[in-house]
Simulated assay, not measured.
Amino acid sequence: MTRITLLPRRQLGRTGLRVTPLCVGCAALGNMPETFSYEVAEEQALTTIRVFFESPINFLDLEIC
């Protein structure tokens, strides 16, 4: 049985968005071994993101280039 705990939401600046106080950063999932000293396989990165979407966290730091 999976238990999901709701996290409080806070206003994000003046955006009107309400986000959880916990943010998941995704830079390390970009497979940049020269920056992070390790590699991340595509399937592992996708699994990590899928787990995020099933979590109570709604704040994802993701830069799309």
Rank of each mutant, 00 (worst) to 15 (best):
M1L: 08
M1A: 15
M1G: 10
T2Q: 07
R3K: 07
I4W: 10
L7C: 10
L7T: 07
L7I: 03
P8S: 09
R9Q: 09
R10V: 13
Q11T: 06
L12W: 02
L12V: 10
G13W: 09
G13Q: 06
R14M: 02
R14T: 14
R14P: 02
T15M: 00
T15A: 00
G16E: 03
L17D: 00
L17N: 07
L17Y: 07
R18I: 00
V19Y: 03
T20K: 04
T20N: 12
T20M: 11
P21E: 04
P21K: 09
L22E: 10
L22W: 13
V24C: 11
V24W: 11
C26V: 04
C26W: 01
C26P: 02
C26H: 01
A27W: 13
A27C: 08
A28C: 07
A28I: 11
L29F: 07
L29P: 01
G30V: 05
G30L: 00
N31D: 00
M32Q: 15
T35I: 03
T35H: 13
T35F: 11
F36M: 02
F36W: 14
F36H: 08
S37G: 12
Y38G: 07
E39Q: 15
E39S: 15
E39T: 14
V40Y: 09
V40F: 07
V40Q: 10
A41D: 14
A41T: 14
A41V: 15
A41K: 12
E43C: 08
Q44I: 13
Q44G: 08
A45N: 10
L46P: 03
L46E: 09
L46F: 10
L46K: 05
T47V: 13
T47H: 07
T48I: 12
T48F: 09
R50F: 00
V51R: 15
V51K: 13
V51H: 05
F53K: 12
E54F: 11
E54Y: 08
S55F: 02
S55C: 13
P56V: 10
P56M: 04
I57W: 06
I57Q: 03
I57A: 05
N58D: 10
N58P: 08
N58L: 07
F59N: 11
L60W: 01
D61A: 10
D61Q: 10
L62G: 08
L62S: 03
E63V: 12
I64P: 01
C65N: 09
C65T: 03
C65K: 13
C65G: 07
